[in-house]
Each structure stands twice: as structure tokens, then as C-alpha cells.
């Protein structure tokens, strides 16, 4: 049976063309490395502004206060509801207004106020791992707190502590 090569070639070309048309606008979350920057750890200290308890990813919006007093809200991506439920969290674990510390990795576009969360620490010291194993987030052991960019004004915090 002779196989005319142009036939499979045409087929592959058509399928690939259909796949590739969708170039720039689409962002694929579905590989940590293509969405978030493993070399840009961030530390967010602020209040929970909003929790989006939805599939496929939960989102926690954290409002931080910057040096000049301006407020900035970041959105941090957590695991799916199922992932968090298995760790003992639920929709009500993140009430608005709660002071939290979130560590994670910033989006590749550093202009975006978006990050992939690793841990959230609550006022009572409880720590919850928000990440999803299998999304490509870096080695759980590898988070370098020393390198993390703290996005709040820590000097201001120290002043407050002194006053108290």
C-alpha cells in the first residue's frame, strides 16, 4: 500500500494550524512555570479582602498597605476547593478582614499584582499550605524567605511596635 506523504502532512498541518492560531491572548495556568515566576518569591502581609472559593482554583484577595499609605490588593491563587478541604479548610476559613501573611511566587509579568500562594499564616500562628502539588510550584522546601520581596512597608510596622 503506497502512502502518499502529502496526506498525513496535510492532516498534521491542519491540526497544528488550528492549535497554533490561538497564540498570544490565551494564558495557560496549567503549568506553574508558564504562569508564575519561580525566581520571584513574594511575601504579602495584609487583610483578606475577598475569598473566591471556586473550581478549579481558589483565589484570596489580600489588601496590603504600602509605605506611602496607599492600599494595594493582590490576588493569590490557591489549590482547588477539594485540595483545601482535604487539608481541613473550607469556605469559612478565610473571613474578610483577617490579618494574614501569604508567601508565594509572583506572576511572570511583574506588573501584575497576582501570585501563586504557597502558605497562608493566620493571626493565631496557624499555617495552611495553599499550594497544589503537581502544578509545578517549586520544591516545597525551596522557598527562600531571605530572597522574598516583602511588599509591605516593614519599617512602618516596626514604628508601630515601638509605640506600643
Amino acid at each position: 500500500m503506497r502512502i502518499a506523504l502529502w496526506k498525513p502532512a496535510l492532516l498534521v498541518a491542519v491540526v497544528l494550524a488550528v492549535c497554533i492560531y490561538d497564540g498570544a491572548p490565551a494564558k495557560a495556568h496549567h503549568a506553574f512555570g508558564s504562569e508564575f515566576d519561580a525566581n520571584a518569591p513574594v511575601l504579602l502581609k495584609g487583610k483578606i479582602a475577598k475569598i473566591e472559593w471556586i473550581n478549579p482554583h481558589t483565589w484570596i484577595h489580600v489588601e496590603i498597605t504600602k509605605a506611602d499609605g496607599a492600599k494595594e490588593t493582590w490576588m493569590v491563587e490557591g489549590g482547588s476547593p477539594n485540595t483545601l478541604l482535604r487539608r481541613g479548610a473550607n469556605k469559612n476559613t478565610f473571613p474578610e478582614g483577617t490579618d494574614v501573611v501569604v508567601d508565594g511566587y509572583q506572576a511572570r509579568d511583574h506588573n501584575e499584582r497576582r501570585a501563586n500562594a504557597r502558605n497562608v499564616t493566620f493571626p493565631d500562628g496557624r499555617k495552611l499550605f495553599l499550594g497544589m502539588t503537581g502544578t509545578g510550584a517549586p520544591d516545597p522546601e525551596a522557598f527562600d524567605a531571605g530572597k522574598a520581596k516583602t511588599l509591605n512597608d516593614t519599617d512602618k510596622d516596626k514604628d508601630k511596635e515601638k509605640k506600643q
Binding site: I20, D22, A24, A26, A28, A31, G33, S34
Partner: peptide, 10 residues
Amino acid sequence: LNSSEWVFPV
């Protein structure tokens, strides 16, 4: 696969 937005989904 990580460098670009569309390689992984393709």
C-alpha cells in the same frame, strides 16, 4: 514548555 503561554496547552 514553560517559556511560552501556548506550548504547554498544545
